[in-house]
Structures are given as structure tokens and as C-alpha cells.
């Protein structure tokens, strides 16, 4: 196990390296000694029934959720903690924030800032946190908006947009920080069915451009077409992992088979 990990580290530093992470909420163990690596440029879809721990696992990747045991490395660096001998010390808030910037996140409910226009939403963090000159940030925001097909709506408020448009703005906002890794937490679950396609199209385009992505999703079609690897989780552990052709089309575990039978 240790020898194996060292060998991988020698070859290439993985973008995401989760080692033996456990997490409990009260009496409930949400993650049980989960390990996972994601290579740079890889697209990984996390699937599984609700309560399986997939969203919690995703949220540990940018320290939105703290872990009880184990550690999370993003591009070779511990996120949220610094290691000294046998202990992990939680970083100062400033340092956590600095490390988080390299990881973009898109939420189920978009979470755009309702009191800001689309453009203001996108430049808020690059200008305020990333210390980018305003002019540069605006230029970048406009090109990102073009990329997600919303250049016309730069001055609209989020409440004037459809759910699909809001989610595309949220993706642009996350990309504005130039992240190395993008996390998606059920990005299409809150959308009307006819709006799902436009968001998936943007994500597909992003995957095609070589972005490393970890996606919690119920969209089996998307997982099948875009994911390099699909991971099925249940009860806080990874049950099955592999290319979509294997996990979705020919699952070997009974839990996976039951789940897929229910959702497909």
C-alpha cells in the first residue's frame, strides 16, 4: 500500500489524492476510510444513493467539510492542514482560503450572489481575493461568459435568469479563479428537465478542454459519455470504481446493480 503510493508519487503527482478519510456527523459515519486518486485532466463521476457520502467526499476536497481522520492532498499539497510529525494542524483561515482558490466549486442551487449582477458575481473573487486588476478581471469575465454562451446577460441580476443560465454563470464564476480542479455537486439536480442539457453541454466542453473534474451526479448519460471513471459509493465507502462501460453497463457488485436498476 505504502510502496504503491510512493511509486505513483514518483511517476506523477495526482491532482486529487484522498487517503483513508473518515468523517462522522454525530453517530452517523458518513465516510469510512475512503481513498481516491484523480489524475490531472481526468473526469470522475461520483454516483450513489443519497446518504452514500458522495457529496461529503466532494466537500472535503476544498475543505468545506473537515475530516476526522485521513488526509486530502490537492496537487500534492495538503488542503486545510499542515502536517508536523504525526499530527495535522488546521491552517489559519487565510492559508485555507489561499489553498481553496485553486479548487472551483459549482453547487446544486447555484448560490449566485443575488445582489450582484452576473459580471459582478464573476469578478468579485478575482478582484477582491485574487487581487487581479479590475480591468483584467472584467475582460476575463466577458470571455468566460462567451464560453458559457451568456455574453448578452452580463448586466442581468441572477433573479432575471433561468436556472440553467444561473448555473452556467456559476460555472463561469468558478472558472474566473483559474482553478486546477473543478468540483460539481449535483449541478443539474435543481433544474427543470429542459434546462439540464445546456449545463451539461458547458461541462462537456470544459471536460474536453482538459480540466480535471470531480462530479457528483445522477445524470447517467453524462457519466457514460464524459467520465473517464465512474465511482459508485454506498454507506460511506467506495463500492465500485472503473470506466463507465464497466461500472454503469456491467456492474459487478449487487449494490451497484440495484442502484442502477432503480435510476436507469
Amino acid at each position: 500500500m505504502t510502496a504503491n503510493a510512493l511509486e505513483t508519487a514518483d511517476r506523477e503527482v495526482p491532482m486529487v489524492d484522498v487517503r483513508g478519510v473518515s468523517k462522522r456527523f454525530g453517530h452517523q459515519e458518513v465516510l469510512r476510510h475512503v481513498s481516491l486518486t484523480v489524475r490531472t485532466g481526468e473526469v470522475v463521476c461520483l454516483i450513489g444513493p443519497s446518504g452514500s457520502g458522495k457529496t461529503t467526499l466532494l466537500r472535503t476536497l476544498n475543505h468545506l467539510e473537515t475530516v476526522d481522520r485521513g488526509r486530502v492532498l490537492i496537487n500534492g499539497q495538503l488542503i486545510g492542514y499542515r502536517q508536523e510529525q504525526n499530527k495535522l494542524y488546521e491552517y489559519s483561515e487565510k492559508e485555507i482560503c489561499r489553498r481553496r482558490r485553486r479548487v472551483g466549486m459549482v453547487f446544486q442551487h447555484f448560490n449566485l450572489f443575488p445582489h450582484m449582477t452576473v459580471l459582478q458575481n464573476i469578478i468579485e473573487a478575482p478582484v477582491g481575493v485574487g487581487k487581479k486588476p479590475r480591468r483584467v478581471a472584467i475582460e476575463r469575465a466577458r470571455s468566460l461568459l462567451q464560453r458559457v454562451g451568456l455574453s448578452e446577460r452580463a448586466d442581468a441580476y441572477p433573479s432575471e435568469l433561468s436556472g440553467g443560465q444561473q448555473q452556467r454563470v456559476a460555472i463561469a464564476r468558478a472558472l474566473a479563479m483559474d482553478p486546477e480542479l473543478m468540483l460539481f455537486d449535483e449541478p443539474t439536480s435543481a433544474l427543470d428537465p429542459e434546462l439540464v442539457g445546456e449545463v451539461l453541454a458547458v461541462m462537456r466542453d470544459l471536460a474536453g478542454s482538459g480540466m480535471t473534474m470531480v462530479v457528483v451526479t445522477h445524470e447517467m448519460g453524462f457519466a457514460q459519455q464524459v467520465a473517464d471513471r465512474v465511482i459508485f459509493m454506498a454507506d460511506g465507502i467506495i463500492v465500485e470504481s472503473g470506466p463507465p462501460s464497466q461500472v454503469i453497463n456491467a456492474p459487478t457488485h449487487k449494490r451497484t446493480q440495484d442502484f442502477l436498476k432503480a435510476v436507469l
Binding site: N62, L64, R100, R101, F107, H109, F113, A125, G128, V129
Partner: peptide
């Protein structure tokens, strides 16, 4: 969700309070 979005963007608690 507003707090989480701000945190995920790397904003400090202070800044999130003031701006968001």
C-alpha cells in the same frame, strides 16, 4: 449556500460578511 459559495471562492469570513 451564500457562505459556502463565498468560502469556495477563497473569501475570508470577514470579507464574506462585508461583501456577501
Amino acid at each position: 449556500g451564500q457562505l459556502e459559495a463565498a468560502s469556495a471562492l477563497g473569501m475570508t469570513h470577514m470579507r464574506t460578511t462585508r461583501r456577501i
